[in-house]
Design a binder for these strands. Structure first.
Lengths: 233, 233
DNA sequence: ACCTGAACACCGTTCAAGT
DNA sequence: ACCTGAACACCGTTCAAGT
């Protein structure tokens, strides 16, 4: 579904007299203005309230004040709506990560890796349902062509470069970068997932501990791969 | 719902003349014999085919050859059916783990930890949909009172004791056991989850690699917490 | 005691008809 | 061009009625 047919200002079509401001609320008569946007926002809200499964096209339509069939003029299926929601969430996630990284020391790649991990975990703990929607597949027909995959691939590349730099600077005591990378991701993703999937209570981690524990666990991993022996027990 | 009212052989009720063998298939006329069991098996199959979301009470009823309302005589809700399915899967999971552990060296707790991690990962990779159902909550009304939680808690205890023993024997270079434990679980769970959630392709791990990578990642973690420096890069 | 089958309130999705 | 509203095939769940 290539939807790339909206050049910003060119294409002088047939004369449209009563076009007015096109931005005023105007009491929403019949044509809605920006139903697509409103539907995405409603769905984001539903995700926040009850998780990905709680999103229904009909409820989103209800909240947008339109009939049940209206959303299908903008999204070919529920999955497509979910996809748009995931892209929005992924955008926010990425923005937060990059903001955190821009405030991190430039000369210390391992420190930057830690910073990235922390930002990742903090966002995931604060937005568990949104994190879930960008993490679990089954909301994506084609893994390709999706902006989510795009953003994600760039984050992966970023991590890879950081670790490579850390190794080049002699910060690591292990050489198999790919292994370190996947282990690091598994650790961080697993921690975030444990939170989402409700595992912490049975591991003795309370809600208040979670943030501190996240930091501790990340540091344990970094100490495990870093060259300096660090403090012992 | 306390369902503890079936003493094996006592309770001589009112005389029941035509009770016969009560075990022969007998061409299933109207009363089904063991619909509960058949429904669980059908649901397990559905989980295997399309994941937890693919389970519908009606489809399970269809496969069992009964009407849509019949399952509700055995399970009060879809969630209750899912719960029973999860308990079955958890039983199998635990059995496999324990079988692997019984073949592991007794004197080497860290080695046993490795063995447990491997068995965990192997089962999760071979049974991704069943693993998902026992890992994600939202199939459990009450985390308590469930056999799943029971089995799970025992596995957690087991791990805890192993690591404590490893520390007591001087195998670990870190002393905060709880931290090690949670990090280890996050790593292993995260790896299994990455598989389920379809992350491996974008991390350059192919299906054939996955088993070997699991082992590598686990070893990397163990090297990170073990006392012996081991081989460097 | 267990099962049927119709019923209800929900979904996702389609499509003629309206504006 | 966008939206309505009825329709269809699905759900989960309930309940009288059957065996």
């Amino acid at each position: 579904m290539p939807a790339a047919s909206k050049p910003p200002a060119a294409k002088a079509g047939p004369a449209k007299p009563r076009r007015r401001n096109a931005r005023a609320p105007a009491a929403r008569p019949y044509h809605h203005g920006d139903l697509r946007r409103v539907l995405i926002d409603a769905a984001l809200q539903l995700v926040g309230e009850g998780g990905p499964e709680a999103v229904s096209v009909r409820e989103a339509a209800r909240r947008a004040g339109v009939s049940p069939g209206a959303p299908f003029r903008h999204f070919p299926s529920r999955d497509a709506l979910m996809n748009a929601v995931a892209e929005e969430a992924q955008r926010r996630f990425r923005a937060e990560i990059e903001a955190a990284l821009s405030a991190a020391p430039a000369g210390d790649p391992l420190g930057r890796f830690r910073c990235l991990g922390l930002a990742y975990l903090r966002w995931a703990m604060k937005n568990p349902t949104h994190f879930e929607i960008i993490s679990s597949r089954r909301f994506f027909d084609h893994d390709r062509a999706s902006g989510v995959s795009q953003d994600n691939a760039e984050l992966i590349d970023l991590t890879e470069r950081m670790l490579a730099e850390a190794f080049a600077q002699g910060q690591l005591r292990v050489g198999d970068l790919k292994r370190v990378q996947i282990a690091g991701r598994a650790l961080i993703y697993g921690f975030a997932r444990m939170n989402i999937d409700g595992h912490f209570p049975r591991w003795g981690v309370t809600g208040a501990d979670a943030g501190r524990t996240a930091e501790d666990v990340l540091d344990l991993f970094i100490e495990g791969i870093a060259k300096v022996p660090g403090k012992s027990a």
